[in-house]
Every structure is written in C-alpha cells, then in structure tokens.
Amino acid sequence: MDNPREVEMETVSCPEGLEVVWEKPETLTGNRMHYCPGCGHGVVHKLLMEVLKEMDIQDKTIGVAPVGCSVFAYNYMNIDMQEAAHGRAAAVATGVRRMLPDKFVFSYQGDGDLAAIGTAETIHAANRGENFLVVFINNGIYGMTGGQMAPTTLVGMKTSTTPGGRDVETSGFPFNISRLIAMLPGAYYVTRQSVHTPGAVRKTKKAIRKAFEHQRDRKGYCLIEVVSNCPSGWKMTPVVSNQWMEENMFPSYPLGDLKTDGVLQPLKGN
C-alpha cells in the first residue's frame, strides 16, 4: 500500500444497500474520551454501555466512578452515576444497591482504587455478596498521577516510583486480588479478561452481560478484571503495549474464569 487511497466518508447515513453492523450505542454520550490513544478504558466503557443497551436497562442502571484515569467515566456513560472518593466505590455502590434493590449497579475501578486504597471496601463488599458488578481495570500502573507503582505492578516493572523495577523487598508482590476475592463465599462470578483483540473484546462483553444477568437474578457479587494496557504509563505505542501485555502481564494475571456460578475454577498460571 504505497499509495493509499483514502475513503473519506462525510455523511453519517448508512451507505445504500448496506446495514449497520456496529455503531456507537446511544448509551455512550457523544463526549470525546480523555483517555490516551489506545487505552483499554474506552473499550470497556463501550462494552458496558453496549450491554446496557442490549438488555434495555439504561434507565435502571446506576454506575459508580472511581478516582484514577476513569474518574470521568460519567462523562461518557449516558446513565445516572455517582463519583466516589478514592477507593470508596464499593461502599458507595453498596449504599446505592441497598437503597435501590431493584436496580442495576456497577462500580468501575482501577487497580489503585480497588486493590490499594480501597482494599477494605472491595473485600468486604465481595464478602457480603453485594449484588452488584465491579469492573476492575488492571494495567499495573497509576496512569492518572503519572505512572507510579500500582499494587498490581509486576516484579521488576519500571514505574516512576520503581525506577529500578519493582523489588519485592521494598514493595511486596503484585497483588492478585481477583484470586483473593474469588475465594470469598460472597463472590458469585469472578473472571479475568482483556480487550486487546477482537476475540478478547467479544469475551469480555459476554462476561459483562453474564454479570448483569447474574445481578438481575440476584446471584450476588460479580467481579470482572480486565487486564489492560497503559501505553503512556508503560511508554509504548498502543500496539506494542498490547504485545507487552500478552508477554508480561498475562503470565502473572492469566485470563479466564476464576469463579463461575459460585464455584471456584482450577488455578491457571502463577
């Protein structure tokens, strides 16, 4: 493709003779996302909103946004939302859920929010079997504050606060919190997914749909961890960051179900 010809579509109407197979759902607002190019947040936002549209529960769903890169999630999700303090999303979601038992509730949190400052709220919400979905974006780094170490940062991984790579003696081990949560009796469905390939995106969407269906059926706490990239924090292009993620993140955070229908699944990887 030495001389690429460009097709510039100026209209938004469907070309004659074709039908729309994918378009932005109206459950997403028209706001341009502030995320860095290639960041997985946008994909997960999109999937969540697609599922709400498909299940026709936009008017019954309340989201809780965290502190971190996705602090502005409510700018993009066209639903009622509450912005929680750092780490408190699971507590805020508990309050919403307990007062509105017939609605759908989810929190959307990063690794710092969920697995560092909000560990207590996270674990106890899971242990109570709170009937909501927690979407957990694990990219092993603090993106919003400029690339510091996260609880999920890999051993040896360089961040602005582990310039020589994370060393266990100072900073402990990467926190596999989803595995911990899967062991709690209150957790009904715990899965680890990614959104770096079309196939992975399809699987994650299925997982989200499943979690909302569990919530509808009052099965209890569901956690979907999405192992994601942070091109800016990792200092890589989006495409390279996804390759790096496959090679480095997945061995520590292997994809797949950790618990389905309340039953622990065989361990994979570390």
Partner: peptide, 12 residues
C-alpha cells in the same frame, strides 16, 4: 470492537 473511542461505524 478494539476501537477505544468508538469512532468506527461498520456496515455490511
């Protein structure tokens, strides 16, 4: 599917 910014509409 992989577009983080939902900028692509697909027809078929």
């Amino acid at each position: 599917l992989v577009c983080p910014d939902a900028v692509i509409t697909v027809y078929r």
